[in-house]
Each structure stands twice: as C-alpha cells, then as structure tokens.
C-alpha cells in the first residue's frame, strides 16, 4: 500500500470487472494489459490455472480469476483481457472480464475488508467506497503467493 502512495495518501490502482463486481490492483504491479491470445493448457494443473501464453518469447502462466474466486465460468468475449503482472519477480497473467480504468483515490476512503467466511476474502486488502460504487482492492502478493504453492 505504501509503495503506491504518489502524493500523500493517494492510491493509484487499475480497476477491472469480474462477474459485475469491480476490483482493483496496485498499478505498480501491472506490467501491461493484453487482449486474450492463444492459451496453452497445462497438463494436470489446478483448475484456476488457465494455461500459459507466449509473451514476446517468455512463457508465463495465466490464472483465471473467476475460477480462482469461485465465480461462475464465462467464455472469453470481446472485452476479456489478460492483465500481465509482476508479482515478487514472477510474471503472471490474470484473465479478467474487462479492464475499466486507472484510478487515483485517497487512501482514506478504503475500508478494511468485511469479516466473512468467504474463502476469497482473505485476498482482499480493503474496499474503496466511491460515490456510487464499491471497488474491491486485491492483495495480489497474498493471492499469487498461494496460487504458486498450489
């Protein structure tokens, strides 16, 4: 969180949607955003690992966030994107329904995650309340740390 503070207490985030919910990740983790390309399936891999893609000669794993969060599956559409992220030195791709915008929000409007039994809530860093929408901030290090260990 601290690393994203550009001016005092301002967070820069990239927001995206998954099943009508809006999520966001720290912009510093985001390397680039690509249209969906051909994904090669990994044999005997966990379900949420969509496969691997060729990113300019580098083979990187792609995680399906819908599956990771236990949301219903949906085939790739026009808006489907892969967010290429650098997470602790490892490059990963995340498949999301669509990418919305780059946000600058004051950290004051972020509230701690609600205490729920939902398994994916442990990846939530907080919830940002904007005028008429809620954005779920994802703790990407925690989430990928787990994905790698699976």
């Amino acid at each position: 969180m601290e690393t994203s503070t550009v001016a005092e207490n301002v967070l820069q985030l990239v927001s995206f949607t998954l099943a009508n919910e809006e999520y966001a990740v720290d912009i510093l983790n985001v390397q680039e955003i690509n249209r969906i390309t051909e994904i090669t399936k990994v044999p005997n891999a966990p379900d949420h690992v969509e496969g691997v893609v060729n990113l300019r000669g580098k083979v990187i794993p792609v995680i399906n966030l819908r599956k990771k969060f236990g949301l219903p599956e949906k085939g790739a559409g026009d808006t489907t994107r892969i967010i290429i992220m650098d997470i602790q030195g490892v490059t990963n791709g995340l498949v999301v329904d669509s990418v919305s915008e780059v946000l600058r929000i004051p950290s004051g409007i972020v509230e701690p995650p609600p205490v729920t039994a939902n398994m994916s809530s442990k990846f939530i860093k907080g919830i940002a309340k904007l005028e008429n929408r809620l954005i779920i901030l994802i703790d990407i290090d925690k989430m990928m740390g787990e994905a790698v260990q699976v």
Binding site: E38, T40, V42, P43, N44, A45, V49, G51, V52, V53, N54, G57, K58, V59, I60, P61, V90, T91, N92, M144, A147, V148, Q149, V150
Partner: peptide
C-alpha cells in the same frame, strides 16, 4: 527450453515449454 515460472509442474509431466515457429507455446 524455457523454464516455467509461477506454476507448479511437479505433477504435470512437463519439464518446460518452448515456443514453436508459429509463436505457440508447446510443452
């Protein structure tokens, strides 16, 4: 041979991947 980073391949019988002439990833 390109090593696979970020995914556990211990049970997938895969030792790495390569990129073929048409740009596809092949295990």
């Amino acid at each position: 041979i390109k090593t696979l980073e970020g995914i556990d391949t211990t049970s997938s019988y895969v030792l790495g991947a390569t990129i073929t002439g048409d740009g596809k990833v092949v295990f």
